[in-house]
Design a protein around this nucleic acid. Structure first.
Lengths: 141, 141
DNA sequence: TATTGTTATACTCTATAACTATA
DNA sequence: TATAGTTATAGAGTATAACAATA
């Protein structure tokens, strides 16, 4: 049985907007749009992907990804190099500068999350994070 | 201290999209868009508001609200009547048909949520719902 | 012929500003 | 003059299709 509460969609929407609003000033410090951050965060969590793979990882359409990559490359935060194995592909890699910006954002965001989650009961919070991870993992679909 | 997990924004975004995806077939059954449902849900949870108040309640811009109200009124799910006290205002009220559609959607959504939340450990789930409500309530701002 | 990256086009959604009627 | 509701216009964001290079 469940507690009586507003619908999940309402609650999740409200909370996500709160998170986005709190992340904005952090990203602004590095002159990053939300999609820029999603992209460099994806690049910082594994081996360098092709643009196509990066599009799949981030959920951004491959045609819309390009503008972001252009800007980030011009700022020296990432580089695009042809794949020697298949020269149709371009491999996207985070530069040292890009890594530094990513780490700085991550630290700021982690601190923001700590502050936000402090608003919940400590025991509830543990269940919240655990369930959130479990529910987000796709059930073998 | 927190468990090691992806960022809140990532998790909340993924879960919200899952919820929206699962709600879509329910709303489709009643030929409702997401905003239509948000609107009739707001109308079903208190005294009949003016269009301006309804815009504030739902977060929808008052100019964009109008198209939704036009469609819903034409379908007989709500009515707009001039406020006798201030004839600039139009008071929006759910009709009996609108109430019936709302109740049907709510039942379907509640069942969907039960199914979705079954994917989490029962104890975690209690903390999840409790923390979600607590974190969504604006801290006196 | 199929695929990657790219560009161009059309379409949708959103934001802003005007208009009317009431106050 | 100011406000609620409405409409119209311009801008941003998005989807789709075409193109060049490579396989």
């Amino acid at each position: 049985m469940s507690i009586d509460r507003p619908e999940l969609g309402f609650l999740l929407n409200r909370l996500l907007r709160e998170v986005i609003e709190r992340e904005q000033p952090i990203l602004d410090q590095h002159d990053l749009q939300m999609w820029d951050y999603v992209i460099i965060a994806a690049l910082g969590s594994g081996p360098s992907p092709t643009q196509n793979e990066l599009a799949g990882m981030t959920g951004r359409d491959k045609t819309r990804l390009i503008r972001n990559l252009d800007r980030l490359e011009e700022r020296g935060l990432l580089s695009r190099t042809p794949d020697p194995g298949d020269r149709r592909n371009r491999i996207v890699t985070l530069t040292a500068d890009g890594r530094q910006v990513l780490d700085s954002c991550r630290a700021g965001i982690r601190a923001m999350e700590e502050d936000l989650l402090a608003g919940a009961d400590a025991r509830d919070r543990a269940g919240f994070e655990s369930a959130l991870v479990a529910l987000t993992r796709p059930p073998s679909r």
